[in-house]
Design a protein around this nucleic acid. Structure first.
Lengths: 344, 344
DNA sequence: GTTAGCACTCTCCCTCAGAGAGTGCTAATA
DNA sequence: TATTAGCACTCTCTGAGGGAGAGTGCTAAC
């Protein structure tokens, strides 16, 4: 990485700032006038030429102003931006919304997606937290109708999964409760492989229940086994870089289609640890569909218990400072909530 | 409604068919050649002029071909199209997917949205079924950690709602089970108003539980209290009428924003009965945001038990026959599944 | 009632020229 | 030596003008 003079850093930052405001190439004269610079437009032109050489700025065509390159944004995010944080009032407002909502991961995630979308005026996604290794905690069997039984499975860490079970023949609630009690006693704290192994010694009804239990525990351990909450798709459609619908379509498809999203997340944020933030700028040369977008991703949760991913997608011309602090803050809140659900 | 000659009906139908294929004004000559008509282009021109007078066709400008007006589409859907049905193989494929999925309304709705989006290449939405009047069926209290209790509420009709309850002080699982048993015995089959009324006579713990129960039952009875599942937003972005992003943004916002969606549904499909299909063409002069779109909506479920709405949103230039039969079929399937969950 | 013929209309696309914005270079200046 | 004023040059954008093409409406003949 070439080292820049202080003045070059200033100019780069100003170009980015101006370009984010008005998505138009920034000219030297304009920059001097708008920000009251101490030096002349000719000097700015010289510095801009230098910044273009180092690859941080680009000219759409000769005799147009400059706009930041992907590398320019990266340098800005890493070196220039500094650590920004949300205003305390905003933080309080957000936190307040979480504590007003019912205490339930599903609602929290939905709320998180909504808040991310709103705050950053971008498309947001939140994946449900999954334990690195699901452990059995508690099981309840509730007879609903005839041969249908509602199975409620609570995993260590508080994740609750419910499932319907259809029996070959009707079974009384007393019998079901006894089965559940037996299973609760024997499976306490076990992972699904151990449970699988001990299934053979049980009777048919218990085997049926355990088969479903193991299935659900496997699903809970899968990378993207849980739900994905999305919001704010229409936000990005308002941005000028998405006025070409095809750009918008390809980008949003990555969020909408599970397989694409799974690929993206497992190769990016899921490789980093909880609390980590990743900023993908312009598809990073890997995701052609995201060439015109940036994403800010975070991993949240509690290591060893359960973790999930969240993030936003917007134009490259994004207010990184604000977006990153929002994502970081919401991830932190969700992490706290995950931990809170685990306190025994 | 003006009555049309058979030849006019034929021409109107052909114009619509051709326009749906290639979103371009249809000329008289083109129509004669492409469909091998028995009469000349001059005759077609005369008939087209008549159809323009009655308001079923329109010219984007003098000396352009004709395209259907909203009224034209409406006439087509109501009078010309006839009853179409999905091919049996398609039906079987779809039904198969439902019976392969776990028996759980949440997954079925998600699947329904996905299938609607795929089959009709449009944006799809499915709202969860809610009972016209929620009735208590069964309650289970499961101690998870310290003062946190998982409450699982089963309503008549099989809807399951879970909620976390935080107690003032720890309570044993035995005590919780006793409370649940007592409530189950006393509230069987009651609606939330009756339960509210009898709360006063209970002790504190039971009151806390019942308060939450009543809240959840109220929520379940609200028009759009449940979840909304959406899919296929990126499908419509591929359609040429949405190449102007603003058109796409405004239309999709109606699906994305709860308040807009609630307004739309409560004034359309929620006024019709289960099994009913509604086709909204071009916003019907009421929804400005949907001016360039059509929606096919259906109400599904079982009257007296629980009902929900589903539908798709696409360009006005939509393959109505296929879309309507898909929506009707999926609504029927979901209705069957709702009923099935109620068989006692 | 239907159709051939034809003048007319309107869009679309191409080209061209002028305005405007911004650059890079050169020579003068602190 | 670093900075700046001045200036020629380049490129986009916009609007005007003209020709091709598609399709119409009208009229007169069948």
């Amino acid at each position: 990485m070439t080292s820049l003079s202080e003045r070059q850093k200033l100019i780069l930052a100003l170009v980015i700032r101006d370009y984010i405001e008005t998505p138009q190439p920034v000219g030297s004269q304009r920059l001097v006038e708008k920000y009251g610079l101490e030096f002349s437009s000719a000097t700015v032109r010289n510095e801009m030429a230098a910044l273009t050489d180092t690859g941080y700025l680009r000219q759409p065509h000769t005799s147009a102003g400059r706009e930041p390159t992907e590398d320019g944004y990266r340098y800005f995010v890493r070196q220039l931006m500094g650590h920004t944080d949300l205003p305390d009032t905003t933080k309080r407002t957000i936190a307040h919304q979480f504590y007003q909502t019912r205490q339930d991961m599903e609602h929290w995630m939905r709320l998180a997606a909504s808040i991310l979308a709103h705050q950053s005026q971008a498309a947001a996604l939140v994946t449900s937290p999954h334990p690195e290794q699901a452990r059995f905690k508690h099981l309840e069997l509730i007879s609903t109708f005839a041969r249908q039984v509602l199975m409620v499975l609570v995993l260590a860490g508080g994740e609750v999964r419910q499932q319907m079970l259809v029996l070959a023949e009707p079974v009384s609630q007393e019998r079901l409760s006894a089965v559940a009690e037996n299973i609760n006693w024997r499976c306490q704290g076990l992972d699904y492989e151990t449970i699988s192994a001990m299934m053979a010694q049980m009777d048919t009804l218990e085997q049926d229940v355990l088969k479903l239990t193991v299935e659900e525990m496997e699903r809970s351990s899968a990378i993207l086994g849980g739900e994905v909450y999305r919001d704010g798709f229409t936000n990005v459609l308002a941005e000028p870089e998405f006025s070409e619908v095809d750009v918008a379509r390809r980008a949003l498809r990555v969020l909408e289609e599970r397989s694409l999203l799974e690929d993206l997340l497992s190769r990016t944020i899921l490789t980093s640890s909880v609390g980590g933030i990743q900023v993908l700028i312009g598809g990073e040369g890997t995701w052609e569909d995201l060439r015109q977008c940036s994403m800010v991703l975070a991993r949240y949760g509690a290591p060893g218990l359960a973790t999930g991913a969240l993030g936003v997608l917007g134009p490259i011309r994004m207010a990184y400072g604000r977006t990153i602090s929002t994502v970081r803050f919401v991830a932190g809140l969700l992490s706290d909530l995950v931990v809170e659900m685990h306190i025994e």
